[in-house]
């Protein structure tokens, strides 16, 4: 049996929509942003419309059921139902879009801003391009000392950081739900694995207020840790972050 063209077209559109959601949200595990999806669908619908109407017969077939619905006396009942349903759907959609919600307005904000070349902390100036973790060298030279440092870093993390960043370092600490932007998930491949240790030092030491202008507004609730932790403590925490997640800090040198 031949499927009516209108049904075909609707099927294709719904299929593509479902395909986007399925592929991105479930198969790839990265949701497709609704703003982008609506733009995608707008042009997909335009494309489907183009394919289904470029010949006269095809266009007529596509519109025939709609025409019949409006004009055919035998379809009076279904017509009445549709004519009531459509305004209701539009009203419902409009209401949903217009009703105020508790969601904060969308903001464009880059979470990994370009770091400054140098940063001032602890009354000193650090050059982020050459700054290195002073404890990193023990990893190969004195493994037992390194383990000790990592353990100390873990203690500092549990005492200070896990409330937001979580005891599994996955950004799901007890307070995480209340924060926007969400605390960083260090387990994710896109976070600390992409960064040098000096970047982490900068972000930890100067916190939200240390963000450059491009990352404004300063809504990050990351504290300015140089007021609470010593320089060495920060470096130890950084050791712990990489150790626990099993990631390597990014480096421009070949190992």
């Amino acid at each position: 049996m031949k499927i009516p063209r209108l049904l075909q077209a609707v099927g294709v559109i719904v299929g593509i929509y479902a395909g986007f959601v399925l592929v991105f949200d479930y198969l790839l595990g990265q949701v497709i942003p609704s703003s982008l999806l609506s733009m995608y669908m707008f042009f997909v619908i335009a494309g489907v419309f183009m394919v289904y109407t470029f010949t006269e017969e095809s266009a007529r077939e596509l519109v025939a059921p709609i025409k019949a619905l409006v004009e055919d006396p035998s379809k009076k009942r279904i017509r009445n139902v549709v004519f009531i349903l459509i305004p209701l759907l539009v009203a419902g959609f409009t209401y949903q879009r217009m009703s105020p919600s508790f969601e904060a307005p969308v903001e464009l904000r880059s979470i990994h801003p370009a770091p400054p070349a140098t940063v001032k902390a602890y009354g000193k100036r650090y050059d982020l391009a050459t700054l290195k973790n002073p404890f990193r060298k023990y990893e190969k030279a004195k493994p037992e000392k390194f383990r000790e440092l990592v353990r100390e870093g873990g203690d500092i993390y549990i005492q200070n950081c896990q409330y937001c960043h979580g005891d599994k370092l996955d950004g799901r600490g007890p307070y995480a739900a209340g924060l926007n932007p969400t605390p960083l998930n260090f387990q994710d491949v896109g976070t600390i694995a992409q960064l040098q240790e000096s970047f982490l030092f900068w972000r930890i030491a100067t916190g939200g207020p240390g963000l450059p202008k491009e990352a404004a507004p300063w809504i990050s609730s990351m504290p300015v840790w140089q007021d609470f932790l010593t320089e060495e403590e920060i470096w130890k925490v950084i050791l712990f972050l990489y150790d626990y997640t099993g990631r390597r800090p990014r480096s421009w040198e070949h190992e």
């Binding site: 370009a114 770091p115 070349a117 140098t118 050059d127 982020l128 391009a129």
Partner: peptide, 13 residues
């Protein structure tokens, strides 16, 4: 231009 990401100009530290 004088920033670490662009590579357009030398760093000035």
């Amino acid at each position: 231009c004088h920033n670490p990401t662009g590579g357009r100009a030398p760093q000035l530290e």
